[in-house]
């Protein structure tokens, strides 16, 4: 199992320093990177991926610097925010392009791509041009590449951004399965997702790590604090609220609920929809996790 360690890393673009003395070791499981825009999350991933060389400090895989020995990059798979798909090629050729570029060339490569595509429900679109795919299909295809690379360290930059709840759950499910044997660094802005998927939470602010702890410890910090959400719903949500033991009030057409921070809001919303409710609007009135980001 390859370990990833950042040792007093300073990094940035041109003269601008983005990461400011970051020292962190990433272990097996999912570490969620949280932080406001411009806090350095993507830069941290790029440094981990060996794309941006730190101005100072070291990025070590198994105690060896990734910038001294680029063969160490074989342990890494990186899914950037822009998926890196080539629009004029078919999905299959996109995968072949990356497999060849990574040096994975054997007679079975097409067979393996086909097998993995079934897991993601992409087998029917392998011969379609990428330009014809929806946003969700593109994200899944990009994740297919990561699966095919079968690396021990996986870096994911907002893999579920802009996806519907079904596609999001498919991707989260895959990430969860992968995390049993791998180190995954997962960037997201979604606090629900962070608590749902993360084993550890890392909060970056102005290029510095301001919090790095297990999910349980983070939740413990927030003990007693409830998240307050307002939802405008067509239909009767009460049975679902009672099933989840959620305290609720009804005020001027809006249901106001107080939920524990570790309850996944999208799962609750799915339950409401399955119950026959139509969700018209959701407002996050108070989220205690935001306090951590603001601290």
């Amino acid at each position: 199992m390859a370990s990833l360690y950042l040792d007093h890393v300073y990094a940035g673009y041109q003269s601008k320093i983005i990461l400011n003395d970051v020292t962190i070791e990433f272990d097996k499981g999912v570490t969620v990177l949280l932080g406001p825009n411009g806090s350095g999350k993507t830069t941290l991933l790029r440094v981990c991926a060996g794309i941006i060389r730190p101005i100072r400090g070291r990025v070590l895989i198994d105690r060896k610097s990734i910038f001294d020995d680029i063969s160490l990059k074989r342990y890494i798979s990186y899914l950037p925010h822009r998926e890196g798909l080539i629009d004029e090629l078919t999905c299959l050729k996109n995968m072949l392009f990356y497999m060849y570029a990574r040096g994975i060339v054997n007679r079975d490569v097409k067979k393996v791509i086909h097998e993995y595509s079934i897991r993601l429900g992409l087998e029917d679109i392998l011969d379609c041009n990428v330009s014809t795919l929806s946003r969700g299909q593109r994200r899944k295809l990009a994740l297919l590449r990561v699966l095919l690379e079968d690396s021990q360290i996986i870096l994911l930059d907002e893999p579920t951004e802009g996806l519907d709840i079904i596609s999001r759950n498919v991707i989260l499910d895959i990430v969860r399965k992968l995390s049993r044997e791998r180190t995954i660094i997962y960037v997201t802005h979604d606090l629900d997702e962070a608590l749902l998927i993360g084993d550890k939470i890392c909060v970056l602010k102005n290029g510095k790590v301001v919090l790095y702890d297990t999910k349980d410890n983070v939740i413990a910090r927030l003990s007693g604090k409830k998240r307050k959400v307002g939802i405008i719903i067509k239909g009767d949500p009460v049975p679902v609220f009672e099933k989840f033991k959620i305290p609720y009030t009804y005020d001027k057409g809006m249901w106001i609920i107080d939920i524990d921070v570790n309850i996944d809001l999208p799962t609750l919303l799915t339950e409401l929809v399955n119950h026959g409710c139509k969700i018209l609007r959701i407002v996050d009135i108070y989220n205690p996790l935001e306090d951590i980001l603001k601290e």
Binding site: A49, I51, I70, K73, S77, P80, R82, L85, I86, R145
Partner: peptide, 15 residues
């Protein structure tokens, strides 16, 4: 296109 769509970003993370 490769620069814009992130193809280089992926390739540079390869060995």
């Amino acid at each position: 296109k490769d620069r814009f769509s992130g193809v280089f970003e992926v390739l540079l993370s390869y060995p």
